[in-house]
Design a protein around this nucleic acid. Structure first.
Lengths: 218, 218
DNA sequence: CACCAAACGCACTAACTGGTTACTTTCTTA
DNA sequence: TAAGAAAGTAACCAGTTAGTGCGTTTGGTG
């Protein structure tokens, strides 16, 4: 592509107009706005403003508010599934692998609170957008296979009991972190403790690891 | 109040205009509409129509859309807490009591799906409405005390291990049911199974009881 | 460097939405 | 039973919202 004397880095050419960069800015702003207010509560004008883009561009690149939401949601799923695959749990001792997975899930939710809110919003809409995303299903299959592999190796080594369903385990690992964090506001009120203090988060994480390991223990 | 010859039952006088009945109709319609579309997505006109009441009445009785939501949410919490208290778990064997609680929680979520969506909506708004509800806190304290009692009796009888925090246990019991049901749409897509079939629900319930009993087992 | 497609911006609209004004009808009670 | 209070209604308003028509600017290419 580059001539011998041209700058080597592709990023060295900062164009004033760049469709990809603008799209990315819109997606990032949309993720935040959708996460903050839900699909119904999010405002297209606010997304445009936060993205430092013209509202017209949103319709040019994404067609409609719903299609924009669809893209944001799909990206969010692909992001967490990709990160999970990078964990490389297949070569670890099964109990260690499981603890790593519980930790990863917990920390991912903590660092990416938009993920939780986007998923909640999608479920409020009965999963109508995600249904169309074949690519998400493919990635999810790999993820389930990963957990199945850990379970099978654990049973073989005698560390785990047999008969634990990988999907149920997956759901449970997600649940005990997700619920705590998505309901952190009402939870802090109902239980009259700050569920988000550093100590509370640490305590909950340990509790979660304990819950999962006891669940599969031989 | 009644003269000796007047009808004895207070319900025997069906008035065309009854503030309490109208309020109740509005609250019921609002619960459904808020649960279906969230606070932001719900439409006051739709609530009025579904309640078979004039929109003006909503503002007359509740002041604003947000105050209406507040009332609906508070009622939802009071309803589940009241039902929990009626379980009368204090005289049962601790493991039986815990299983009953897991079953109750699961079935309550199944029969009252609006509860989950209302709580999600409230958390999207950072708990701003529930904060004001002192009465909810009082009921919640009783609930935590109930679980503490079960745990203490279980430890005393040797059935449970010591050191399990009642609040963490509460959260976990709620989480494993709540997450499964609130994310039933995306979950059914991602895991490529119908999570809401009769068999799937039965399987999940058993898994949940198992999870909790293993968690507290001595 | 001329050209044209793609990127971008402004100003607009039709439909909607929470909330209100001004009014009528029904119920209660002195 | 008269009268006032409470319940209920219809029409309306001002601000907002997703979505567009159309003109302008930019940058790559022959």
């Amino acid at each position: 592509m580059n001539t011998p004397l041209s700058p080597p880095a592709p990023a060295a050419k900062p164009r004033l107009r760049d469709a990809e960069v603008t799209k990315a800015r819109i997606l990032e702003a949309a993720k935040r706005e959708f996460a903050k207010n839900g699909l119904g509560g999010a405002r297209v004008d606010v997304i445009a403003e936060k993205a430092n883009a013209n509202k017209r561009m949103i319709y040019h690149y994404f067609g409609s508010k719903e299609e924009l939401f669809h893209t944001v949601l799909e990206n969010a799923y692909l992001d967490i599934r990709t990160a999970e695959q990078k964990l490389n749990l297949d070569h670890l001792e099964p109990p260690i692998a499981l603890e790593r997975l519980v930790r990863f899930t917990w920390e991912y939710y903590l660092k990416n609170p938009e993920f939780i809110t986007l998923v909640n919003s999608e479920n409020l809409h009965r999963g109508k957008h995600l249904k169309k995303s074949e690519v998400v299903k493919i990635h999810s299959r790999k993820f389930v296979a990963m957990v199945e592999n850990i379970l099978a190796r654990g049973v073989a080594s005698g560390a785990f009991r047999a008969g634990v369903d990988a999907v149920q385990l997956n759901i449970t690992i997600a649940a005990i972190g997700y619920y705590y964090l998505t309901n952190r506001f009402t939870g802090s009120i109902v239980f009259e403790r700050d569920l988000m203090s550093k100590e509370a988060l640490e305590e909950r994480f340990k509790f979660n690891v304990d819950t999962i390991l006891r669940l599969v223990a031989a």
